[in-house]
Design a protein around this nucleic acid. Structure first.
Length: 552
DNA sequence: GATATGTCTACAT
DNA sequence: TAGACATATC
């Protein structure tokens, strides 16, 4: 059985444990922990005769350029802040910021590719989006190297028309699988997608807001679904929207809408059999005329020798330059061998569900009490993982499939709540709070002022106003802590602090304030949270569409 | 009731 | 970074 792996998903998770080393480009072995993490998961799959095909992202598509630029800006800002915290000796705050600053680079992917090559694991670097490559492989016949499912965290895969996707696969093999054909066939699902075809479904995803195009104001998942159900024609829907929304309709929305649709249908991918750059689905006749543009938004053409070199991991897909030649030449090339792929039988495809639901959860156990935090031996750990994975990849019986929305009569297969880090973090938090509560008394400053905690916590503001603010800042922190300890509830609006010159404006939760004070992380400086109103960009709503499926 | 916006937190060790 | 959840707004 061949399963596609969205490399970015696991690279991103793996990079978490060594984000500081990666950002500082340290020489320590720790920097390569992300490879260990990745290979552990790969080996888990291989143990169960599931053949992973690892798919990497290639170059950026032009229509995502703005998103990428913004992400880079945020990463750089967080990295600078992290460096500043490190210089101050605040390693905890630095570490948190480094986690937000880490970037998965082509070089990191290349390091992993070298390991994959040495372990004879199949991989391919997409010319552009890995999502499109995975969707293409998913819709390819098994005999031609097609994959039977995709493991990812990226909900865009459903808009690309990927038939079987496994989300949130953890190291114990728990995950959620969604099957597209069930989305269109389940009768009991409300709202129903029964009358939808893939084209209408993708249209709905774009209408509701996706990575390539934010939705028209006032249009979310529900309205998008209602529009598609009612009109069943995307051009018609655009006309209706233009009529209804008038000036609210963004300039050029119809054109952008068609471009976004075209990305989901006709993205450029690498044909593993002919070794050429191709469109995911062939372009229909008169396609270019209907778009009234060229295809640059899908990413430019790439000469065939370059496409092959990128796909095989020898060229940096962004710069088109060779990776370290010495490193490359030492390792044998291992492109996908179709002969190997033919050996996998169709009979290994997951058995269809009897239950009428397109959304299922896979659990390794059916009793949450089994999840203990005690350290288990590698052998035991492996057998737990093996047990779980068996359920993930083996044909399922009806009673192993449950609705995501669990009704009261069901005995749920609970997703384990045994993350040892979470428990440890909680304990640390308690200790920290106790420690912080004993910090020294601070003298009261007399004048009355209105103080926004974010402004107050900002080091820039603090530096501007000189060192006399130090005591006021400390006092303010302490008063906030005291007040929040007393109330033990969310503080919002304006809270007057007695016998003090401070008014605490729009403070969020108690824990949030404590955390800010403890880490001395300023909100305005950090990109962690944007407090500027209306600055939050509308993101992709495709994940919300996923949740629609669970409302059965 | 649906959408928009804000907040918190898991990702790993 | 993105998803889950809560709250505000229409």
């Amino acid at each position: 059985m061949l399963v596609g792996i969205d490399a970015y998903s696991w690279l991103h998770k793996g990079a978490y444990s060594c984000s500081m080393e990666l950002c500082l480009d340290s020489d320590s072995e720790r920097k390569l922990r992300y490879i260990e993490y990745f290979m552990h998961r790969v080996n888990l799959l291989r143990y169960y005769k599931v053949t992973p095909v690892v798919v990497f992202d290639g170059g950026n598509v032009p229509c995502k350029a703005a998103t990428e630029k913004e992400r880079n800006r945020k990463r750089n800002a967080n990295r600078e802040l992290a460096m500043a915290k490190l210089k101050e000796g605040n390693v905890n705050a630095a570490s948190e910021l480094f986690q937000r600053a880490v970037n998965i680079t082509p070089h990191m992917a290349h390091k992993l590719i070298q390991t994959l090559k040495s372990e004879n694991i199949e991989f391919v670097v997409a010319p552009y989006e890995a999502d499109a490559q995975l969707a293409y492989l998913s819709n390819l016949e098994i005999e031609k190297g097609g994959i039977e499912a995709v493991i990812t965290e990226d909900s865009d895969l459903i808009a690309y028309g990927c038939p079987s996707i496994i989300f949130k696969m953890d190291r114990e093999g728990n995950g959620e699988r969604i099957e597209l054909k069930k989305v269109f066939s389940v009768e009991s699902c409300k709202p129903s997608f029964r009358s939808f075809d893939m084209k209408l479904f993708t249209g709905m995803c774009v209408l509701a807001g996706c990575d390539f195009l934010p939705s028209v104001p006032g249009i979310g998942v529900a309205r998008a679904h209602a529009l598609v159900s009612k009109y069943r024609n995307l051009d018609r829907i655009l006309s209706v929207l233009k009529f209804e929304k008038g000036d609210q309709m963004p300039e050029g929305y119809a054109k952008s809408f068609k471009d976004a649709l075209a990305v989901f249908h006709h993205a450029r991918i690498y044909d593993i059999n002919t070794k050429e750059l191709k469109h995911m689905k062939p372009l229909p006749e008169n396609f270019l005329e209907s778009l009234d543009t060229n295809l640059d938004f899908l990413g430019p053409e790439i000469p065939s020798t370059i496409v092959i070199a990128i796909a095989e991991g020898n060229l940096n897909p962004s710069t088109k330059e060779a990776f370290d030649k010495f490193e490359c030449s030492r390792l044998p090339l291992h492109p996908i061998d179709p002969q190997t792929i033919v050996q996998h039988k169709k009979s290994e495809v997951l058995a269809p569900f009897k239950q009428e639901n397109c959304f299922s959860i896979f659990g390794s156990h059916n009793n949450s009490e089994n999840y203990t935090v005690t350290r288990i031996s590698d052998k035991d750990k492996y057998s737990n993982e093996a047990l779980a994975l068996e359920k993930l990849i083996m044909p399922l019986t009806t009673n192993e499939t449950i609705k995501k929305t669990i009704t009261s009569n069901d005995t749920p297969l609970k997703v384990p709540n045994n993350n040892p880090f979470r428990i440890r973090k909680h304990e640390e938090e308690i200790n920290l709070v106790q420690k912080e509560d004993t910090i020294e008394e601070i003298s009261i400053v007399s004048s009355v002022e209105y103080i926004d905690i974010d402004t107050y916590m900002s080091p820039n503001k603090f530096q501007e106003e000189g060192s006399k603010n130090l005591s006021r800042k400390r006092k303010f922190e302490n008063i906030c802590l005291e007040k929040l300890e007393e109330t033990d509830e969310q503080v919002s609006g304006v809270t007057e602090v007695e016998n003090c010159d401070a008014l605490c404006l729009n403070v969020e939760s108690q824990e949030s304030v404590k955390s800010k004070i403890r880490n001395n992380v300023d909100l305005k400086g950090s990109e962690k949270k944007s407090k500027i109103s209306n600055s939050k960009k509308k993101g992709s709503n495709i994940r919300t569409i996923l949740n629609f499926f669970s409302r059965v």
